[in-house]
Computed example of a mutant assay.
Amino acid sequence: MKWNRLRISGIRNIFFILVLVTTAAINRSQAQGQSYPYYYVVVGGFAIKSNAEHFTTHVHELNYPARYAFNANRKLYYVYVRVTKDKQQARETTYRLRLETEFKKAWIYNGPLEGSGVAESTAEAEREEAHATGNNVVAEPPAADTAAIAHTPATDTLSSSASSRLAKTFMFQLTSGTANTPVAGSVHLLDKEPDDLVEQYPANQKVSVPAPTTGKLVVVCNLIGYKLAKRTINFADPLKSIKGASVGEEQEVIIPIKLVPVNRGDYIELEHIKFFEHSAILTPASEAELLELVNFMGNPRCRIRLFGHTQSDASGEIITKGTSADFFALDPANNHSKHGSATELSRQQAEIVKAYLVSKGIAPGRIATKGYGAMLAIYENAAANDRIEVEIIRN
């Protein structure tokens, strides 16, 4: 049955009130540091299940593959239009919804959901997306080895017992371009189900890898300047599971991973660049990812735009580098301090990343900056909204 205009208006009002509550209470969301393999693009949250059902129907009428599920931590039913393991795709979908649709407050939830409205597998969800007519949300191709959605924190499947199991020697060979130019970097290995992080390994050299409990490993490479690459390995017979895999001179299994460079208009989220509180001063842990960005900018054709984002729109003290020579430490004698807005803080954070790149020899004219403050605080986990993003202007 179609809604009448009054009922739609009432549900929308409830929805927007709940969005405001979500934004105000964002610090009470999932525990900091907890990692889940799936990202939900959420367009509404409701305390009453029937309201979630009605809103899901409304979203379906707009040709979006909506579902609802229960967030036990928030005691809310979430209506979402996409679930994916790819954080970048979730971010792009959320931006598109905010800019092009009525869902101006869409956000990303990375955590467990439960309830009858949850699709039991991403394969099912993606099949429904692919068949949705007029769908503005880009559907992902279903993977043959897609795991079921995890609704509880994953256990450490490669814990202390892993070292006692049979190991194999691998070489994860990263290349790019038609000439298969070697690419320096590292890969992460994840146990197949439920995609628990196993270990980070250097690429292009021999490494010993313990057998996973499930018999399968997912190899993930997420280097700055390249699109995310994944390979699923059957540990018992890797040569058959990976096209082009071979055996090296010392019986190591060589896994080829050809990386695809990012294109103009692509966005990269610098997940490991962090700042000291109330400041535009980088923490020491940021340096490794910044050096990756320096390597990417080694291509003289490359032009980028840096965007700063914050979790809050509150004004307050802003500490900047000032005359200090250190990018990665507080230096009270030489740092500067002033009162400013969240937009100014985010702009200063983008500027200090630019300053670091310039200190490494990158021409300043190749780097633009902009601060958004909390305007695009799209993650329910508040801390995740303090971030730096890179837009590729030319590559």
Rank of each mutant, 00 (worst) to 15 (best):
G111V: 00
F296M: 12
L197I: 06
K75E: 15
V83M: 03
V81S: 00
P256G: 09
E199Y: 10
K321R: 11
S208H: 09
N385C: 02
P112C: 01
E120G: 11
L282G: 06
G244T: 11
K243V: 14
V183L: 10
V262W: 04
A24E: 10
E250N: 14
K168Q: 14
S208N: 09
V209P: 04
V118G: 01
L99F: 14
H54W: 05
Y78R: 00
K2N: 10
N136G: 12
G316F: 15
V21I: 13
D313N: 12
H58Q: 10
N234F: 09
A355V: 07
D191L: 03
S29Y: 03
V187P: 02
L259M: 05
N135C: 12
N51L: 09
A143P: 02
L18V: 03
V198W: 14
A333C: 06
N4E: 11
I268W: 02
H309Y: 15
A150V: 10
T155W: 15
K49S: 09
R301G: 15
K2T: 10
Q89S: 05
Q311V: 04
A368D: 11
G185I: 07
F16H: 08
E114D: 06
P142E: 06
F15Q: 12
D237L: 07
R67T: 04
I392N: 01
S279W: 03
A47K: 05
T214G: 06
F170E: 03
P65Y: 01
N71F: 00
A280H: 03
T157L: 14
V43S: 03
R366K: 10
E277D: 13
Y95E: 08
K49C: 03
I304E: 04
S29D: 07
S312T: 11
L97Q: 01
R67C: 05
P261T: 12
L345R: 08
V253D: 04
L76V: 11
I254Q: 11
K75N: 09
L270T: 05
K75Y: 14
T23C: 07
G340Y: 13
A374E: 04
A125Q: 04
P332F: 09
A125F: 15
Y39V: 02
V218P: 00
T320Y: 08
Y80F: 15
I233N: 07
H54Y: 13
H278E: 12
A119G: 01
E277Q: 11
T152R: 08
Y201C: 07
K104Q: 12
E120V: 05
T175W: 06
A374G: 09
T146W: 15
T84S: 07
H58P: 00
Y64M: 14
A90M: 00
T283W: 02
V253T: 13
K104V: 11
S159T: 07
A69Q: 01
I378E: 05
P65K: 04
K338W: 07
N204Y: 06
K360N: 13
L376G: 06
T101N: 06
S176A: 14
A47G: 10
Y78G: 00
V358E: 14
E92C: 01
R231L: 14
A383T: 09
Q205I: 14
A383K: 08
I367A: 08
R165H: 13
Y36D: 00
Y379C: 00
F55T: 02
H131S: 12
S50M: 05
S121Q: 03
T320H: 08
